[in-house]
Design a protein around this nucleic acid. Structure first.
Lengths: 121, 121
DNA sequence: ACGACTCGTGATCGGAATGTGAAAGAGCTG
DNA sequence: CAGCTCTTTCACATTCCGATCACGAGTCGT
């Protein structure tokens, strides 16, 4: 293998994340992330609609290819798994944001720029 | 370079606020605001009639879908919640103005009248 | 100034939505 | 089969929201 990065197919960039769905590859600041198939699919669908809120049902339909049964927590579980791996790779960033009652939103936000409002103490 | 924001459905703009009711999303100077369902509904109804005074009863009817009982302070409470979040996001701006005895009015007014255009990265 | 009414604001409470860890099930490989 | 990884499901913990209350501050009429 050469060191040349040849990216075929779709490339989705969200902040320091590079997602190449067709190559089953995600890079966090250049470093490859080890994701399972489901994890990759969930992240990909979220990334395709980054900065927008995605309902659980919609996300489930896109990833699992069928309707979500009421009470199904699969989406939450995989969001959790992704958060853990993303936080391990890029601790100062947060990516998957919960919108209570609606769903999730993928946006690259660094903790540095968003935490400057608490000046007390 | 910001990617094109694909926004479907209604878009209401009030100064530096972008409200997308169908996406359950509000942007303050481009940054997403975390609002609850009720908060979003109240802000949306106010924004649909921006620069006009809206009575509590009318606002309550539109958001809650029923008649307001006398002494109900729900509208006030949610106006308060919205003010807090809007002020956190855009301290230089004031949006929800009280008209004593009548109701509230949504208008984007900047306290720094000079040159403070909101920066759009 | 006084009282009556309106509004601001923090607090509480129950229920619901979400976070989280782990067990159980399914599939794959040697 | 034995061991592994991934997926699904479950149970419990935690957080959040919405409704309401209480009290203080503000506003208006007299």
């Amino acid at each position: 293998m050469t060191a040349t990065i040849r990216s075929r197919g779709e490339l989705i960039e969200v902040g320091p994340l590079q997602i190449l769905p067709d190559e089953h590859l995600v890079r966090a600041a250049g470093r490859p992330l080890m994701l399972s198939i489901r994890e990759l699919r969930v992240l990909t669908e979220l990334a395709r609609r980054s900065d927008r809120i995605m309902g659980r049902e919609e996300l489930f339909r896109l990833v699992w290819g069928r309707e979500m049964r009421p009470g199904d927590r699969s989406v939450d579980v995989y969001v959790r798994k992704l958060r853990v791996k993303l936080c391990e790779a890029l601790p100062q960033w947060s990516f998957i944001h919960t919108h209570f009652g609606f769903g999730y939103r993928l946006s690259a936000e660094s903790s540095q720029e968003s935490n400057d409002r608490f000046t007390t103490e």
